[in-house]
Nucleic acid binder design. Structure first.
Lengths: 218, 218, 218, 218
DNA sequence: GATGAATGAGCCTTCATTCAT
DNA sequence: GATGAATGAAGGCTCATTCAT
């Protein structure tokens, strides 16, 4: 990105490879969605944000819908890759995996105000629902089944008894809800505090591991 | 609504009081937001949904923004009144109050797919944030401080020790997140299951009162 | 039209009934097709020709295609009505009917440079062929079968022997070809001379009736 | 064309002589005009049809207008050369010359659906009239004066009395009209039948030569 | 009050043309 | 010669808003 940015600031006329321009335009789309909202995200505004002509956006993406769906796929895949690699890097024990999961959701690379706002645009706009289903449901199902399996392992391997499906759902919606706070509040709390909030929730369900005495206690 | 509906079906030309027409148009706005999303909610579509003429919407609301902000205020106030009266009707003890609170959030009158979708439109659309702040922040602050006070009373009066602010936040964002599930899933679970989910969350924090053995156990 | 013209020249703001505005816009479309050709006939140009805003064209016709097809239907029906009433007004004998037919094709109301040019736009543009088929083939088939029947009657009732189908086709394409001359030549001959040309063609096939000695001789 | 086709199928990158590339692009332009019509004939579509890159069209023709006018000149000259060599190959007597003329108009090389459609695009499009005048009027005048002279010779040398100018015009517009039938009908008659039609027209004017008993009778 | 014709700003998209590579 | 990225004018269409009736 840094190269693309530098490029757009200095000249903007030089030719760039297809991939580099598309990445640049996806960045501009995320920024525009965050700043203007879905309804006011126009091709012209995206082009202006990128410092390019509006014709170029169509040259690379053909339609507005393709630009938006590509952006959504980009966000969705980046998010999946983030928590996947976090899980791989963490110890295999269920509590460690859940801890890595929660930390990944509030990773500074993923949990930026811009990206959260862009997510919010897609979530809120009824017309994007088919698009969302088409491009994100696989990732979302994967996410849900992964955390459900981990909650089940907390019961099987660590002696907890809460309903795994519902507990997993709570952990997921708390994360989403905290994201919504971060993106919509005029003066939101810090990412750290959001992580602390989901942590006390995990502690409520799994006190021996996430509570003050637990090894994973904040 | 029944009166308004009857009206629009039979004649649509009879003069109606200011208030009745406005209510009719707000209903139509909610329905349109839910069906089309924010970006495709046009004055014409609202008028068509209401079975009224194009110009009449402007006659009653002057601008699109006023129509939308009035609709938002309507939703926000209806919601506040719902949980307020639920609290008043419930026993004054903190656990009963919290239980009433949670039940009110999934009351069939409030928690309809249409209204949830309309909420989602306002939440997701960055451009509505100033409008949301202006019209809803008072209600939202009231909601937050009420539930925070109740969580504090759970500590003070019933011997729990969780952080009241964060616990209240968890209960709020779980509710919001479950709403989002209900509005966006193609085949969402039932309202009952959503209530059960927030309930096990409350049980995790307040096991003696919301857990299986508690008097309020589902 | 006179009222509409007067209207558009003086004010252009007064409201007009749906039908009157649509007629005015169809006139403007014909004029634009004649002046600019199909490819440069834009909604904006039609609106400018009519002295109205471009939004109004969409208000009345929704799409450019509907505007053009309505215009085509208008031309096609006007033409059919013209020759039909000419046939009705003429004596029933086959030569008189054919004579009336030919005269109708060069009637000053039908055979104006503007309308001929508009016809030419539809004929020449491959993309309008489906539209033409849909809206004009019935009228065209009616035209063809009528003149074929008359040519057959010339054989049956007046002792000629030429192939009725082919003769009818010659009369039709001569008319069309003369129209093309009138619309495309920089200095075309007069309508009278066009009529004289088709007449000597009829005389070649039916000399006793259309020739110099015939009662219908020019 | 075969060479150009082979070229574009195999490699498309090999350097080709200026003339060969231009011929290839003219063929592609004719094909595009026939398939898409004038209004939708774009540089990109021509390039795609030719299997070449976008920029190459501009490299060879500079502007769209030059591409189109070159194509028109190509068609016009090819047509003139066709009937000229037909006249040269035919006996010098006037009836033979006229017969050769008519046959040349429906020669399989000239009278293809694609070329007729391309002609139609130029005829119908008012904006091309200046271009047509500039590039084709000489050929057209030559055509007209040639056939008028032949009709005059039919009177002078073979005892007919019809008006030579008007008869020549009839023969010309019948040909043009038959072409229009061939290009626009969904299920047109065969080229043979078109030739038969113009033949009976000639027979009507010159029965002793083109009629059933005439030496040139079909 | 109520209707719907009328306006014009703004959007998405197409496309001729230019030009760096 | 040849490619394809890049530009910007222009077109079709939508829609909030105004206003005569």
């Amino acid at each position: 990105m840094s190269e693309a940015e530098q490029e757009s600031r200095s000249e903007g006329r030089r030719k760039l490879s297809r991939g580099a321009r598309q990445a640049q335009l996806i960045e501009a789309t995320i920024a525009t969605l965050a700043k203007q909202g879905y309804a006011r995200t126009t091709m012209g505004e995206v082009a202006r944000t990128a410092g390019l002509s509006h014709g170029l956006v169509n040259f690379h993406f053909e339609t507005k819908e393709k630009l938006l769906s590509t952006t959504l796929v980009y966000l969705s895949d980046e998010y999946r890759e983030s928590w996947q690699s976090a899980l791989e890097a963490a110890p295999p024990d269920a509590p460690d995996q859940i801890a890595a999961f929660l930390r990944a959701d509030f990773d500074p690379k993923i949990c930026t105000p811009e990206k959260l706002s862009a997510w919010g645009s897609f979530w809120g706009e009824a017309q994007t629902r088919p698009m969302y289903q088409e491009h994100c449901s696989a990732n979302d199902l994967y996410y849900t089944s992964t955390i459900e399996a981990l909650c089940q392992r907390m019961n099987d391997e660590h002696g907890y008894t809460s309903d795994a499906i519902l507990t997993a759902r709570v952990l997921r919606v708390v994360t989403e809800g905290l994201w919504r706070d971060l993106m919509s509040m005029t003066e939101p709390y810090e990412r750290d505090e959001a992580l602390a909030t989901v942590w006390i929730c995990a502690a409520a369900f799994y006190p021996r591991h996430f509570g003050p005495q637990g090894l994973l206690g904040a």
